[in-house]
Measured scan of single mutants.
Amino acid sequence: SIEEEIKKAEEAKEKGKTFIHGDFVATTEELLDELLKRLRKKL
């Protein structure tokens, strides 16, 4: 679910890890923020 993806992305951000969502690879905090923004729009 979208909620689960958001939670996983937030955890990755806290730990400074890379998060992959489909073909979107978030390797930096900026990219994770962008991904979180996109996911929240889908809610």
Results as ranks from 00 to 15, higher is better:
Lys37Ala: 13
Ser1Glu: 09
Leu32Phe: 14
Glu10Asp: 03
Leu39Phe: 05
Leu35Gln: 01
Glu11Met: 08
Arg38Tyr: 15
Glu11Leu: 09
Glu3Ala: 11
Arg38His: 14
Ser1Arg: 11
Thr28Lys: 01
Thr27Met: 10
Ser1Ala: 10
Glu3Gln: 11
Thr27Ala: 11
Thr28Pro: 01
Glu3Cys: 15
Glu14Cys: 15
Leu39Ala: 00
Glu10Cys: 13
Lys7Gln: 11
Gly22Tyr: 11
Ile6Asp: 02
Glu34Arg: 10
Asp33His: 08
Lys15Pro: 02
Lys41Gly: 06
Gly16Gln: 06
Ile6His: 02
Glu3Tyr: 11
Leu35Ser: 00
Ala9Gln: 02
Thr27Ser: 14
Ser1Tyr: 12
Ala12Lys: 01
Lys15Leu: 13
Lys13Leu: 10
Phe19Ile: 06
Thr27Cys: 14
Asp33Ile: 12
Leu32Asp: 01
Ile20Asn: 04
Glu11Asp: 11
Gly22Ala: 06
Glu10Leu: 14
Lys17Arg: 09
Lys42Glu: 11
Ile6Arg: 03
Val25Asn: 07
Glu14His: 10
Ala26Arg: 02
Ile6Thr: 02
Lys8Tyr: 04
Thr18Ala: 12
Lys15Val: 03
Glu34Tyr: 13
Thr27Glu: 11
Thr18Arg: 09
Lys8Gln: 11
Phe19Ser: 02
His21Ile: 08
Glu10Thr: 08
Thr18His: 09
Lys8Ala: 10
Phe19Val: 05
Lys17Asp: 10
Ser1Gly: 09
Ala26Phe: 10
Glu29Phe: 13
His21Pro: 04
Asp33Asn: 12
Leu31Trp: 07
Val25Gly: 03
Lys41Met: 12
Leu43Ser: 01
Ile20Ala: 08
His21Ser: 13
Leu39Arg: 01
Arg40Ser: 01
Leu35Pro: 00
Gly16Asp: 04
Glu11Thr: 08
Thr27His: 13
Leu31Lys: 04
Leu31Val: 03
Thr18Glu: 09
Leu31Arg: 01
Ile2Tyr: 07
Thr27Phe: 14
Ala26Tyr: 14
Glu4Gln: 09
Glu5Arg: 09
Thr18Asn: 08
Leu36Ala: 01
Thr27Leu: 11
Glu5Ile: 15
Glu34His: 07
Asp33Trp: 13
Lys8Pro: 01
Lys41Gln: 13
Ser1Pro: 07
Glu29His: 10
Glu11Phe: 06
Thr28Tyr: 07
Ala26Thr: 03
Leu31Thr: 06
Thr18Asp: 07
His21Lys: 05
Lys7Asp: 02
Arg40Glu: 00
Leu39Asp: 00
Glu5Tyr: 14
Lys15Gln: 13
Leu35Arg: 01
Leu43Phe: 08
Leu32Thr: 01
Lys37Arg: 14
Lys37Ser: 11
Gly22Ser: 05
Ile2Lys: 03
Glu29Ile: 15
Leu39Ser: 00
Leu31Ser: 05
Lys37Gln: 12
Ile20Phe: 06
Glu10Asn: 07
Ile2Asp: 03
Leu43Ala: 02
Gly16Leu: 11
Leu31Gln: 15
Glu10Phe: 08
Glu34Asn: 05
Lys37Val: 08
Lys8Met: 11
Leu43Asp: 00
Lys37Cys: 15
Arg40Asn: 00
Leu36Lys: 00
His21Glu: 04
Thr18Gly: 11
Ala9Ile: 14
Ser1Asn: 10
Glu29Val: 14
His21Phe: 14
Lys37Pro: 00
Lys15Asp: 04
Glu14Asp: 09
Arg38Gln: 11
Glu4Ala: 11
Arg40Ile: 04
Glu29Asp: 10
Lys15Phe: 10
Leu32His: 01
Ile20Gly: 02
Glu5Leu: 15
Lys8Ile: 04
Glu29Cys: 15
Lys13Gln: 05
Asp23Ala: 11
Leu35Lys: 00
Thr27Lys: 09
Asp23Gln: 09
Phe19Tyr: 13
Lys15Tyr: 09
Lys7Cys: 13
Ile6Ala: 02
Leu36Ile: 14
Glu29Arg: 14
Lys8Glu: 04
Leu36His: 00
Ile20Lys: 07
Lys37Met: 13
Ile2Gly: 03
Gly22Asn: 07
Leu31Ala: 11
Lys42Val: 11
Ile6Glu: 02
Ala12Arg: 02
Lys17Ala: 11
Lys17Cys: 15
Ile6Tyr: 02
Asp33Met: 10
Glu4Ser: 09
Thr27Trp: 14
Lys13Thr: 01
Glu14Trp: 12
Val25Leu: 09
Ile2Leu: 13
Lys17Gly: 13
Arg38Asp: 01
Leu39Met: 07
Arg40Phe: 09
Lys7Trp: 07
Glu29Leu: 14
Lys41Leu: 13
Asp23His: 07
Ala9Asp: 02
Lys41Ser: 09
Glu10Arg: 07
Glu3Arg: 10
Ala26His: 01
Glu3Met: 13
Leu35Trp: 05
Glu34Leu: 13
Gly16Arg: 05
Arg38Ser: 05
Lys13Val: 04
Gly22His: 07
Glu5Asp: 11
Gly22Met: 09
Gly22Asp: 07
Asp23Trp: 14
Lys41Glu: 10
Leu35Tyr: 05
Leu31Gly: 04
Glu14Met: 13
Gly16Glu: 06
Glu30Val: 07
Glu30Ala: 13
Lys17Pro: 04
Arg40Gln: 01
Phe24Val: 04
Lys42Thr: 10
Thr18Lys: 09
Lys7Arg: 14
Ile20Pro: 03
Lys42Leu: 15
Ser1Trp: 15
Ala12Met: 04
Lys17Val: 13
Val25Glu: 08
Arg38Ile: 14
Leu32Ala: 01
Asp33Gln: 07
Asp33Val: 10
Thr27Asn: 15
Thr28Asp: 05
Lys17Tyr: 14
Ala12Gly: 01
Phe19His: 06
Gly22Gln: 06
Lys13Ile: 05
Glu5Pro: 03
Leu36Gly: 00
Ile2Asn: 02
Lys42Phe: 13
Leu39Gln: 00
Phe19Lys: 05
Ile2His: 02
Glu4Asn: 07
Ala26Val: 07
Glu11Lys: 05
Ala12Phe: 03
Leu43Asn: 02
Ser1Lys: 09
Glu30Asp: 10
Thr27Arg: 06
His21Gln: 08
Glu11Cys: 14
Lys37Asp: 07
Lys37Gly: 05
Leu36Asp: 00
Glu4Trp: 11
Ile20His: 07
Ala9His: 01
Ile20Leu: 05
Leu31Phe: 05
